[in-house]
Structures are given as C-alpha cells and as structure tokens.
C-alpha cells in the first residue's frame, strides 16, 4: 500500500505544477461555496455584532459609540454575568458527557441484528421530532415534587426525593437528565458512524477469543473516534448555547439558578432592548466557545484516529 501511495505522489509531482499549488487551487475551489457564503452572510453580521458591542444601541435610533464600556461593565459590575457563565458551564459539564455516552449506548443497541430494528430506531428518534412546546408540560408534570412521576418512582425505592427543577440546587441536574431524552440526533450520527466499522475486525476479535467488551474497546471505539469527536464538539457548542428549555420551563429560576448565558443575553436584547450590551455578551460567548473548541481540537490528536490518514 505504502508503495502505491508514494508512486502516486511521484506521478503527480512529475506533472510540472507543484503539488502544493494544485492542492491549494482544488481545495479553495471545493470549499469556495462555504467561503463565499461566509463573506456574503456571516462575515457582515459578525462584524456588525462586534461594532454594535462597542455602542449603546436600543435597536432604534443611532448607536452611540461608547468604546469598551459594555465589556468593562460586564467584567466589573454585572453580578449576573458570572452567574450565567457558571450555570452554563456546570450544565455543560453535566449534560455533554452524559448525553454523548447515552447516545453512543443507544446507537450500539440499535446496531444489533434484531427484528423490528427500523421501528426501534424511529421510536428512539421521536423525542427529537415532537415539538418541545408540546412536551414541556409533560416534563413539568414529571418533575413535580408532590405529584410528579419521578418522585413517585423514587419514593418506594427509599431514595431521597428531589424538588427537581423547582429548587436551585437540583434544577441543573434535572435539566441535564431531561436532555438525555433528546439525544436522537447524536444517536443517529453515531449510528451512521457504526455502519462504517468493518465487520471483519469483529470477527478477528472473536477468533482471538475476545468478548463484547473487547470488541467495543479495541474495534468500535477506536474506529468511531472521529464521530465521537464530532459529536463532542457540536454537543458542546450547542449546549453552551442552551436556550429553549430554561426559556420555556424555568425562566431562569429559581433565583437565577438556571439563568443560562443565552437566556440572559436574549433578555438583554429583546426584553431590555439593549442590543449593545447583548452584542458584547455574545462576543464574549464566541470567545469562550472558540477557546474551548480550540482546546478540544488541539487535544484531539491524542485520541482521534482517522483511519484514512494513518501515516
């Protein structure tokens, strides 16, 4: 194999144009729709957000230039900025690993050879299809401390009852628990990834006397690392921007215990009409997410293996 590959390289270089240059041209050609789209539709609004963050602007009237005053206020006198950052980070730390592990588990379960597999797959994806506004009341009932189903299950088991989303110390774990229900999309991506695991490798493990755990440990997980990586990055980015669940179910309460960052930012923009401040908050969010994503990318070389790029 190595031989063929190096022969190919030689052949390319012999055609005169430097391989690097030609790759740059092809690369830009293929990615040009996204690059052009970025400059047409994303670049402007991002620049606008940066610009607006340096002003005081009530959505109407002319923005008034105030330099870094919004940022200064956020970092020095805003008591809710740190609160919302910590709420969001704690929730992300709770929810992301749990939902990725759960989605992976479901995907493996749905990759078995069992009857009615399409039916099961569809069922597991259902919570992602039903509009949240329709099922939110169901969750309010499940979480109810006095009459809800969750405490009704817990009570006979002798476990301590919880006030779930109605107490400041349990609201975030409760919302994280709820997020497990909506892992259908992540599960689907894992399922697609599992289709690419060569079945012969499992047979090889079986020949060596390996069990299910060995297959998982030595075949499935290593081959799936690019997909796990994708889900990890995207779930993190999306979780850091959690909005709908607190907006519909807790409105940030009790006592700001579920004041998620984007909920806070949304209030600034559309309830207080303070777009300058909201823009500054979102630039900070962009930086936070950017740094976290960068760290994940940098550490990915330690644990993500691209089968196609084993050099």
């Amino acid at each position: 194999m190595e031989n063929v590959a190096s022969k190919g390289r030689v052949a390319q270089e012999q055609r005169g144009l430097s391989r690097k240059q030609r790759n740059l041209l092809w690369g830009l050609l293929f990615t040009s729709p996204a690059i052009i789209g970025f400059f047409l539709w994303q670049f402007g609004p991002i620049m606008a957000a940066i610009g607006i963050s340096l002003t005081e602007w009530k959505i109407v009237g002319t923005p008034e230039w105030i330099g870094l005053a919004n940022y200064q206020k956020i970092f020095t006198t805003d008591p809710l900025f740190l609160k919302s950052v910590s709420v969001t980070l704690i929730y992300t730390a709770l929810s992301v690993p749990a939902s990725i592990a759960f989605a992976f588990f479901l995907a493996v379960l749905l990759d078995q050879k069992v009857r009615l597999l399409p039916v099961f797959r569809t069922i597991f994806y259902l919570p992602s299809i039903v509009p949240f506004i329709a099922s939110s009341y169901l969750w309010l009932w499940l979480f109810n401390p006095d009459f809800g189903a969750l405490n009704a299950i817990i009570r006979p088991l002798g476990l301590p009852e919880s006030k779930w989303i109605f107490a400041s110390d349990s609201v975030l774990p409760s919302l994280a628990l709820m997020s497990l229900w909506g892992v259908g999309g992540t599960m689907l991506i894992f399922l697609a990834g599992l289709q690419g695991v060569p079945k012969q490798l499992y047979e090889a493990v079986e020949v060596d006397g390996g069990n299910v755990w060995h297959k998982m440990r030595h075949v499935t997980i290593p081959i799936m690392t690019p997909v796990i990586f994708f889900n990890f990055v995207l779930t993190t980015i999306n979780t850091l921007q959690t909005f709908t669940q607190p907006f519909v179910m807790t409105q940030g309460g009790p006592n700001n215990a579920s004041l998620f960052y984007v909920l806070y930012l949304y209030r600034k923009a559309f309830r207080q009409s303070d777009m300058g401040y909201a823009s500054a908050l979102s630039i900070i969010l962009l930086l936070i997410i950017g740094v976290l994503t960068y760290i994940i990318f940098r550490t990915s070389s330690l644990w993500v293996f691209y089968e196609g790029e084993r050099d």
């Binding site: 970025f38 609004p45 959505i59 930012l265 923009a269 909201a278 979102s282």
Partner: peptide, 16 residues
Amino acid sequence: LLSTLMLPYVVTLIPT
C-alpha cells in the same frame, strides 16, 4: 468558518 456556529442568533438576527 466553524466560528459561525458559536454566535447566537440573537445578535446576528438584526444585521442579517
């Protein structure tokens, strides 16, 4: 390009 996923719609809505 990935950074486009990191800015909430709340602030890009109006410029867009």
